[in-house]
Design a protein around this nucleic acid. Structure first.
Lengths: 196, 196
DNA sequence: GCCAGAGCAAGAACACGTTCTACGCCGCTA
DNA sequence: TAGCGGCGTAGAACGTGTTCTTGCTCTGGC
């Protein structure tokens, strides 16, 4: 009784649609990893995904939406890895430093991809606000697990600020005003100043 | 002896060049104040400044360079006003809050202009890095005067972090994920957490 | 069986940042 | 005086994100 319409894997047509969508995302990741934001050209994404340009735009209303979808996936994966192997350290500042070290390492593994995703994140298109909010939420949850259980006054405020610093530092790194070492330095400095 | 070639106001031709340049900047300000980043269209800037497109590009190698020049001017002007009337408050946190209040008010006076300038600041073009660095330096000097003379451990680190938070908050505001009130709230919260 | 509509392909068309071409004007120097 | 280089104008041309057009195919309801 394949016609019973279970809520997922509804029909062959839907499966194909899902496959197409995932091909588009994969193509975006490959192009971004190869050459950064500007290498993710919508025509290339479409042709690499073997899809028409109109189809790409049917699924993702803009290039930034496409990349933010990728970013959400990546951030969620990072959070899951963090949850699977929680940060080590006796006090929040140490655990935070561990998180930042691991996070930075993960991002530096594919610098072009990271640059592309951060570029999309800091792009000013207003209609991507929900996506951006989602990413920020994930980042904050990562930070929260690092400082949880410590004696932190106003943990909420601290988390917000560390999230901001993380974003600003990444953005500066993408913009070329900061190198990887300075990035790590500023992040740990922020953790030391804000956490016991 | 007008032919003695004094270092400024060299010749009539140079005066005209300077006037053209300032017309271009003015046109950019007007367009940005009217409609934000996307309203600053290079063709419009050129025609409003009564200048050919090629001339505009001769003076400013890109739209972002043009807007960053404007931003540098604005930031410097803000710093001068701050220097002229130093922030009030008994302790660094209070003075910092005063600075942030005045700064935010100044920026909110022309929200479209601010959005355009912040957009240029967070754009990922690598060859604007020097400009960005200059702006960051000015922002930091503003912050520094606010916390100077207080009992702040690691003032340098604190200044850097507050600068990052300022930038990140502005960027979030431009991106639509934060409104003016939340912006002010997060900024003062950062000041409280980092300063005595 | 048949129609309405959704999803897609293929590609033209449009918008705006950026570059290039062709030319003119002016001041300098051999 | 003649050429040369720098700056300017006018406008075409190019690249890439985005939108639009046209036509095809499949699906679900009558």
């Amino acid at each position: 009784m394949t016609g019973a319409a279970p809520p997922d894997a509804r029909s062959e047509r839907d499966l194909e649609t899902a496959a197409r969508r995932s091909r588009m995302v994969d193509a975006a990741v490959e192009l971004a990893a190869a050459g950064g934001y500007e290498s993710v050209q919508m025509r290339d994404v479409a042709s690499r995904a073997e899809v028409a340009l109109g189809t790409l735009y049917r699924h993702f209303p803009s290039k930034d939406h496409l990349l933010l979808e990728v970013l959400t996936e990546q951030a969620t994966a990072l959070r899951d890895r963090m949850a699977q192997r929680p940060p080590e350290g006796a006090v929040p500042a140490e655990r935070m430093a561990d998180v930042l070290r691991r996070g930075t390492r993960a991002l530096a593994r594919r610098p072009n991809l990271t640059a592309a995703l951060v570029t999309a994140l800091t792009s000013p298109e207003a209609d991507t606000a929900p996506h951006k909010h989602a990413v920020e939420t994930v980042l904050r949850s990562i930070i929260t697990t690092a400082i949880d259980g410590g004696d932190v006054a106003d943990p909420d405020g601290v988390v917000r600020i560390l999230g901001y610093v993380w974003l600003a530092v990444l953005s500066a790194w993408v913009g070329g005003t900061l190198d990887t070492d300075q990035m790590a330095e500023d992040l740990t400095s922020a953790a030391r100043l804000l956490l016991p």
